[in-house]
């Protein structure tokens, strides 16, 4: 019955084909930060902003093809975000990523340096984890998704997500300890 409710709301929201500009703008406002932080985990801070922009450009171009029967706008946007990350990871094998400075604005340069150093260590440690675990870490701690939402995006059970997340944290900590971080 709740499914019916959700479907009817979606139908109402999508009474015109695709996603309206208003709905898209809402998605942008709500998810920009979360997608940026997800992408930072998966691709690193150097590439994060560029990839995040790519996500929204791609989504904007495809918004008319959005089908409310296939899922919520949020699910649709996150599928695009994950595809962008996957595509970039594939391309990364073919070329060296050009490094650039993190563009985040800060009034505390020292803290910035520490954060960037911590990020570097986390990035290296994450690289030792299976791809699935990296994705779960990014969706939970970067994007701020719940285990339930992650389960939906990754087509896994919520219990499985919870277990993998816990084990991934343990592995990551072990790896970081090896890096003398803790």
């Amino acid at each position: 019955m709740a499914t019916l409710i959700a479907q009817r709301i979606r139908q109402f929201l999508a009474r015109e084909p695709g996603l309206s500009e208003g709905a898209f703008t809402y998605l942008y406002e709500r998810h920009l930060d979360r997608i940026l932080n997800y992408v930072r985990y998966r691709l690193g801070p150097e590439e994060a902003e560029d990839a995040t922009a790519d996500v929204f450009v791609r989504a904007w171009g495809r918004r008319r093809g959005y089908d409310s029967e296939k899922g919520t706008p949020t699910t649709w946007l996150w599928a695009i975000a994950r595809n962008v990350v996957t595509d970039r990871l594939r391309r990364r094998r073919l070329r060296q990523v050009e490094l650039s400075l993190d563009l985040a604005v800060s009034t505390d340069p020292l803290a910035d340096i520490e954060r960037q150093e911590e990020w570097r260590r986390v990035q290296v440690a994450l690289g030792y984890l299976p791809t699935v675990d990296q994705e779960i870490i990014a969706l939970r701690f970067g994007a701020g998704h719940t285990n339930r939402a992650i389960a939906g995006l990754m087509e896994m059970s919520e219990a499985n997500v919870a277990q993998r997340l816990r084990r991934a944290l343990r592995k990551l900590r072990t790896q970081l300890q090896g890096d003398d971080m803790l």
Partner: peptide
């Protein structure tokens, strides 16, 4: 890890 979250830059 949660503390490592960041806000989008004005550039983005």
């Amino acid at each position: 890890l949660l503390a490592l979250r960041t806000a989008p830059s004005p550039h983005l």
